[in-house]
Design a binder for these strands. Structure first.
Lengths: 189, 189
DNA sequence: TATTTGAACAAATAATACAAATATTCAAGT
DNA sequence: ACTTGAATATTTGTATTATTTGTTCAAATA
């Protein structure tokens, strides 16, 4: 593993625990056993470190979902697996979860303000290609792909956030499941 | 119109324009042509004035939607009318819209923290009774009424807010329409 | 009696200045 | 290519005072 990634891994835990403001470059340097000035050899500034840390964590999330989806054949199962794997992943990765709670702006949904557009677009592409496959196989209604994708993506993000902001816990999980099945029936012919 | 309502009407515009903190009791009093101490004859304190102002505006919204829904017979049409009337109402009432943007906590959705539980519950009841009617008439799937209601209600709130936060304008409106039709297909047998 | 007011007081906010912590740069060392 | 220590630039914290705003209340008014 290269050193940028190593720094990001340590920074992720610190940002999650203390938040952006309370985490100092020196904290990160200490965790790495180096001096703070050396962090600047790898990152432009604190903001840059934060963004690359978050972007890396989001990419890991997206890749995990993409892998699970690729393992399924049936398009309806792909959809369900995508929905549930995302949920599971966040449950298991508390650092990323905590950061999403502390910095809700990570999911701005208005593309022009999205600080992580690239990786978020990638996540949306997974959903989009499932819907396209469903239509091509004549198993989904011929919906407006772009708008339905955006609709479902924002609903999905909202629930992932909501589920972990307060420990609304099982109620939201049940709501989410009902929502997923509702969406499946809405898509399916 | 009684004076409490009159004060609330003026306060609504001021809260919308300046926000809770920047709006002073004196601003409200001036708008009414009275002194600030007299406001305390009608309201316990500033917080009380704000809550009653917002609750009143929310009630007006809910009543407008309830009226439109009651005028329809067909349960699917009821659902659509509910969705679209809500949207229209917010488009037309920019003060309420602005307040919802400035104070997203108005829709906390975790009932224990909901400052406007009574009126929000009333709004959710409209949706719930539509779903119940659909099931009773054997036109909707036998879903988990409570959870599906909560799911759709939070999606619906999210979009109403989103649609007006930035002027994402027509894109969100189209997304919303696609979402409504997706939900209709998901509910309908 | 129901409303309204002005004056007084309490609480929150704004403004200021100084001290401490933190971010960032950079020349020099490994 | 990588790391460091020291220096500088920014931001944040604290303590103080001034100003604004929220709230109360006894007296006035209608």
């Amino acid at each position: 593993m290269n050193k940028e990634q190593e720094i990001c891994n340590h920074a992720l835990g610190l940002f999650a625990h203390y938040g952006y403001r309370k985490t100092t470059i020196e904290d990160v340097a200490d965790a790495m056993g180096m001096t703070k000035s050396n962090i600047y050899f790898y990152f432009k500034n604190k903001q840059d470190l934060y963004e690359k840390t978050v972007a890396g964590a989001l990419s890991g999330w997206r890749d995990s979902v993409a892998e699970a989806v690729a393992a399924e054949q049936d398009v309806v199962e792909k959809f369900r697996v995508m929905a549930y794997r995302s949920f599971e992943y966040l449950r298991a990765h508390s650092d990323l979860r905590t950061i999403l709670e502390k910095d809700p702006g990570i999911f701005t949904l208005t593309p022009s303000e999205d600080r992580f557009r690239e990786v978020n677009m990638g996540a949306m592409e997974i959903l989009k290609s499932i819907i396209e496959q469903g239509i091509k196989e004549n198993r989904f209604h011929r919906v407006d792909v772009q708008h339905v994708t955006e609709f479902l993506f924002s609903v999905y993000i909202m629930f992932l956030i909501r589920a972990y902001v307060k420990s609304e816990g099982s109620t939201v999980a049940t709501m989410y499941e009902e929502g997923v099945e509702l969406a499946v029936r809405g898509l399916r012919k």
